[in-house]
Every structure is written in structure tokens, then in C-alpha cells.
């Protein structure tokens, strides 16, 4: 259940603002790919084009190709709704649905689409997803309590459970730990490591140690100056990027000599 993503010459715009320029890359299946780079260089923007969430923003548009196992996400005939079922997303701030219980949150992808699902199957899917998100043990006794009653780290894992309950091929995470304490961060990092058995995982992070810890491959984004579009400076095996970067900018950023 995982797919390779090929991006060709992707340019991303907010209205007339050119946010990301000419990105080409390959994201390998069953691996964790991390994006690092300074704030505002377009990491989130780029990530959101991988499941067509970018166009949700008024004025958001994209030029170029994103191929998932050879099929172009941006082809005319492709329905963005189907893309998002295949490519799930976890956001920076945990955002469980406040009107729903923990279980309803996990099953939100099914329930919101009014798919019929038997109670037993629903229970099974909820348990499987919560186990997949390393949260089952902590919430199994209070599945009917509101999801907003969990701690921040638990809420984030709830959101991950919600994303994997839709059974996507790819999971995108935008700074999933930046609102979490170190222990919750560790829990989520462990989880990411497990997720790559089954999914293609792409994670944006501000934390370089985290990128080094969890990812197999790393892409470094940068922008030449404010107001200029962000670019992919280089991408490669995490080991190589951190130990032996090809570009000066990457080295400067990684070693903390930046700006």
C-alpha cells in the first residue's frame, strides 16, 4: 500500500505570487522523506500540492506534474477528492473535530462520506487505526469522550489515526511535532518509523535532528531572498545530506550558519 511520487518542474502560485519554483524530485515508496529549510521557503506549500490541498486556498494554482505511480494528479480527469483519499495529511496543529468523540474522529473519513459501515467493522477499523497510531492503549476506555479532551500529543496521534483510517497510500505530515512536548514528539517519531512499513511518508520539519532521526531521504528547500520563490536546493539520502552536502547553502543551513 504505498506509492512512488515523481514531481516534474512544479511551479506553485498564490494568485500572482510565485511561491515555489521548478521543483523536480522523486519520493520513494515505503520510505520517509523529510523536507527541511528556513521558514517561508515553501515547504508547506509544496507538501500541500501533493494531495491537491493547495487549490483549496483561493487563488492557489499549480503548473507542472505530480505523478503518483505514473498517474498525473493534476490531469483533467482526476478528481481532487479521490487524490485526497489516496494521499492523507496531518497538520501542524492537531485538529480533531470538536463535535465528535474519539471514535467518531477516527472514523470521520468514513462517516463524513456517509459510507455504510457495520458497527463491528467500525469498531475494528477504529481499533486498527488507533493501534496503528500507537494510541489505542491510552484511549480504549474512553472512545466516546470528545477528542478535544486529549493532550496535544494524543490529539496529534488521533489525527494520524484519522488519516490512516482512510487507508491512504501516502501520508503527508506538516511539522507534526512542532506543537508537541519532547515525549509526545518521541511517540510520534516512533510512529513515523513504523508507518513507513506500509506507507510512503513525507514529513516537513523545522527540527534537523528530527529529520536526521526519522528520514531516509532529505530535501533542502531555500529561497534566495524574501519575495523570491522558494526552490529545492538539493535532495538525497539523509546520511549524505547531513554529512556531505553538495551545496554550500545546505551546509550553512545544517551547521546553523544561516542568515
Amino acid at each position: 500500500m504505498s506509492k512512488q511520487i515523481d514531481v516534474h518542474d512544479l511551479n506553485i502560485f498564490y494568485g500572482n505570487f510565485h511561491a515555489v519554483q521548478d521543483v523536480s524530485m522523486t519520493i520513494e515508496a515505503r520510505s520517509v522523506t523529510a523536507f527541511i529549510g528556513p521558514s517561508g521557503c515553501g515547504k508547506s506549500t509544496f507538501l500541500r500540492t501533493l494531495n491537491r490541498m493547495h487549490e483549496v486556498i483561493p487563488g492557489g494554482r499549480v503548473k507542472g506534474q505530480v505523478l503518483v505511480d505514473g498517474k498525473d494528479l493534476y490531469a483533467r480527469s482526476v478528481d481532487p477528492v479521490d487524490v485526497r483519499r489516496q494521499v492523507g495529511m496531518v497538520f501542524q496543529r492537531p485538529n480533531p473535530f470538536p463535535t465528535m468523540s474519539i471514535k467518531e474522529n477516527v472514523l470521520a473519513g468514513v462517516k463524513l462520506n456517509s459510507k455504510r459501515i457495520s458497527a463491528a467493522a467500525g469498531d475494528e477499523l477504529a481499533e486498527k487505526s488507533l493501534r496503528g497510531a500507537n494510541l489505542w492503549g491510552e484511549v480504549k476506555d474512553r472512545l466516546d469522550k470528545p477528542g478535544s479532551g486529549l493532550s496535544g500529543g494524543q490529539q496529534q496521534r488521533l489525527c494520524i489515526a484519522r488519516a490512516i483510517a482512510v487507508q491512504p497510500e501516502v501520508i503527508l505530515m506538516d511539522e507534526p511535532c512542532s506543537a508537541l512536548d519532547p515525549i509526545s514528539t518521541l511517540a510520534v517519531e516512533d510512529l513515523i518509523d513504523e508507518l513507513k512499513q506500509d506507507y510512503t511518508v513525507v514529513i516537513v520539519t523545522h527540527n534537523m535532528q528530527q529529520a536526521a532521526r526519522v528520514s531516509d531521504r532529505t530535501g533542502f528547500f531555500n529561497l534566495e531572498a524574501t519575495g523570491k520563490p522558494g526552490q529545492l536546493v538539493e535532495m538525497g539520502d539523509t546520511q549524505r545530506i547531513f554529512n556531505n552536502p553538495a551545496e554550500k547553502a545546505t551546509e550553512d543551513y545544517i551547521s546553523g550558519r544561516f542568515g
Binding site: M53, V81, V83, R84, F91, A108, G109, N113, R162
Partner: peptide, 17 residues
């Protein structure tokens, strides 16, 4: 909050739903 809309959209729920 816009986050809730995005959370639901990202689960592959059509906009009207």
C-alpha cells in the same frame, strides 16, 4: 476554524459534505 475544513477535505471528503 479553517483547520476543520482542511482536516475534512484532506480526508477526501467532498466540499459540500
Amino acid at each position: 476554524p479553517n483547520e476543520l475544513r482542511e482536516a475534512a477535505l484532506a480526508l477526501g471528503v467532498p466540499k459540500w459534505r
